[in-house]
Amino acid sequence: MDVFMKGLSKAKEGVVAAAEKTKQGVAEAAGKTKEGVLYVGSKTKEGVVHGVATVAEKTKEQVTNVGGAVVTGVTAVAQKTVEGAGSIAAATGFVKKDQLGKNEEGAPQEGILEDMPVDPDNEAYEMPSEEGYQDYEPEA
Score class of each variant (00 low, 15 high):
residue 88 I to K: 03
residue 68 G to Q: 03
residue 124 A to Q: 10
residue 5 M to G: 02
residue 82 V to T: 03
residue 21 K to R: 05
residue 28 E to A: 06
residue 105 E to W: 07
residue 100 L to Q: 07
residue 112 I to Y: 06
residue 119 D to M: 03
residue 138 P to W: 13
residue 90 A to V: 12
residue 96 K to D: 09
residue 13 E to R: 02
residue 117 P to M: 09
residue 18 A to C: 15
residue 134 Q to S: 10
residue 35 E to V: 10
residue 89 A to M: 15
residue 115 D to I: 04
residue 121 D to A: 06
residue 20 E to W: 15
residue 96 K to S: 12
residue 6 K to E: 03
residue 94 F to N: 05
residue 75 T to I: 15
residue 115 D to C: 09
residue 124 A to W: 09
residue 5 M to R: 03
residue 15 V to E: 00
residue 91 A to N: 12
residue 73 G to C: 11
residue 136 Y to A: 07
residue 64 T to G: 06
residue 69 A to Q: 14
residue 52 V to S: 04
residue 47 G to T: 13
residue 30 A to W: 08
residue 115 D to F: 06
residue 36 G to I: 15
residue 57 E to V: 11
residue 13 E to C: 11
residue 119 D to F: 09
residue 104 E to P: 10
residue 138 P to K: 09
residue 133 Y to F: 11
residue 19 A to Q: 02
residue 87 S to C: 04
residue 34 K to V: 06
residue 125 Y to R: 04
residue 25 G to V: 01
residue 69 A to R: 15
residue 40 V to M: 11
residue 57 E to I: 02
residue 54 T to I: 15
residue 55 V to C: 07
residue 45 K to N: 02
residue 122 N to I: 07
residue 87 S to V: 03
residue 7 G to Q: 09
residue 48 V to K: 01
residue 112 I to C: 11
residue 128 P to M: 03
residue 99 Q to Y: 09
residue 90 A to Y: 12
residue 104 E to C: 00
residue 117 P to F: 06
residue 49 V to M: 15
residue 96 K to C: 15
residue 81 T to V: 10
residue 130 E to Q: 12
residue 76 A to T: 14
residue 43 K to I: 09
residue 128 P to L: 12
residue 4 F to N: 00
residue 20 E to D: 05
residue 117 P to K: 06
residue 30 A to T: 08
residue 21 K to G: 00
residue 103 N to D: 10
residue 107 A to G: 06
residue 2 D to W: 02
residue 140 A to I: 06
residue 135 D to G: 05
residue 72 T to Q: 02
residue 1 M to L: 02
residue 66 V to D: 01
residue 14 G to E: 05
residue 72 T to A: 08
residue 93 G to V: 08
residue 61 E to R: 02
residue 31 G to T: 10
residue 33 T to L: 10
residue 99 Q to N: 07
residue 31 G to Q: 03
residue 87 S to I: 04
residue 121 D to H: 14
residue 81 T to L: 03
residue 91 A to G: 13
residue 32 K to E: 00
residue 7 G to K: 01
residue 44 T to C: 04
residue 63 V to L: 13
residue 107 A to E: 09
residue 128 P to E: 08
residue 86 G to L: 11
residue 5 M to P: 00
residue 124 A to E: 10
residue 70 V to N: 02
residue 51 G to N: 09
residue 28 E to L: 07
residue 43 K to V: 15
residue 2 D to I: 15
residue 21 K to Q: 07
residue 120 P to K: 08
residue 66 V to H: 05
residue 139 E to G: 09
residue 133 Y to C: 12
residue 104 E to S: 05
residue 27 A to K: 15
residue 47 G to S: 14
residue 42 S to Q: 07
residue 120 P to L: 04
residue 81 T to N: 01
residue 4 F to P: 00
residue 31 G to V: 08
residue 4 F to K: 00
residue 16 V to N: 09
residue 101 G to A: 15
residue 10 K to T: 05
residue 21 K to W: 04
residue 133 Y to D: 12
residue 19 A to R: 03
residue 136 Y to W: 10
residue 98 D to L: 09
residue 52 V to N: 00
residue 27 A to V: 12
residue 126 E to V: 03
residue 91 A to V: 05
residue 64 T to W: 14
residue 109 Q to L: 10
residue 44 T to E: 00
residue 135 D to A: 02
residue 61 E to L: 04
residue 8 L to H: 00
residue 84 G to M: 08
residue 89 A to T: 09
residue 121 D to P: 14
